[in-house]
Design a protein around this nucleic acid. Structure first.
Lengths: 187, 187
DNA sequence: GTGGAAACGGAGATCGTCTCCGCTTAGCTC
DNA sequence: GAGCTAAGCGGAGACGATCTCCGTTTCCAC
């Protein structure tokens, strides 16, 4: 279904080009960029872009997906490098920096969360796994309360990101409050 | 500047109609409604709508404004009715319900926060005052930590709202975590 | 090389936002 | 209540973005 056929060489190349152009363009102009502009930049016609990515959200989801993958991977690395509580806290901030770095992508992704596209569902489960792993360890170490689940964490981080998009300097501070709320009540 | 002239009777009426239609339509279809649809519903031409509200954001801001006012007012009422800590918590949930009830308005408002339109600035200061008042009392009563300011509170609530737009059932739970993060460390 | 499927790409259909301007009407004046 | 004037109306249409359709080009299996 996902990989019916090997995809022709030129198609593969063009697809790659569009994704690169999209990543660049979103980073520069935020989510309001036009898709035709992306196509132009990638050196393909709009038709080609839409062949590969039926609509704006699919493109966004696909670009976002590779980012998510790297984020999940770095989560795993943190788990090996730091003690549980710190790994968890660092990962939260990492997500943060990550989403912040991509102007507008956060909002776009959020809007898309509601649509439940397959790519997005896959992303979510990737993230949930990464979050779940770090979270579980932190909980076992007694750094995070037990009644929190991965979804809670993801949503909370996302919420802070969205809410501080227009005031990035508050982000760290707010994330700190949230983290405090996730810690177990002191004995 | 705001009230140069008394505004002709028909103009006032139309303005009111558009606002009513806008409120209804946003509530029904979320933020994606077209302005022409609102105009149609209000029984005026698009030209008229745009005369009163130069663009989408202005309309949104104006509709939102009256909501904010009522919210601030209810905040004040809560302050008289309940002990400080509870009044504060209740107000948070109130904002919550309020924003949730208006599908999509939350997102729209957020996007607009960045633009700093005069109406929005006024809203923000209204909210800040209401939040500040309740917050200060709660802090004095020792229910909320001292290093939190009204802006923090507003952003956090807003963040949770945005993050749970696609999963309303999580809202209460997440807000609970956030509230816990705002409480003073136990002795 | 050739046949045919896969992919391209751009012209243009469609839809939403917002503007322009000729027409209508409220509301003052006598 | 008739006339005047400026405030206000409203819809046709300019503009710009998304997405589609289909004739043309390119790949690649034979």
């Amino acid at each position: 279904m996902t990989t019916d056929r090997p995809l022709r060489a030129d198609a593969r190349r063009n697809r790659e080009r569009v994704m690169t152009a999209a990543r660049e363009t979103f980073a520069e102009h935020g989510e309001k960029t036009t898709l035709d502009e992306i196509a132009r930049r990638a050196g393909v016609g709009p038709g080609t872009l839409y062949r590969h990515f039926p609509d704006r959200e699919t493109l966004l989801a696909t670009v976002y997906r590779t980012d998510i993958e790297s984020l999940a991977q770095r989560g795993r690395a943190l788990g090996d490098e730091y003690p549980p509580g710190e790994a968890f806290a660092r990962w939260l901030r990492l997500q943060f920096d990550h989403i912040k770095a991509k102007r507008g992508v956060g909002t776009a992704v959020k809007r898309m969360l509601g649509t439940g596209s397959p790519t997005m569902l896959e992303c979510k489960s990737l993230m949930r796994d990464a979050a779940g792993d770090l979270l579980e360890r932190a909980q076992e170490a007694g750094d995070i309360r037990k009644d929190v689940d991965p979804d809670d964490v993801l949503r909370l981080v996302h919420g802070v990101v969205l809410a501080t998009e227009t005031a990035p300097e508050m982000a760290d501070r707010l994330l700190g409050f949230v983290l405090d709320g996730l810690r177990p009540p002191q004995t």
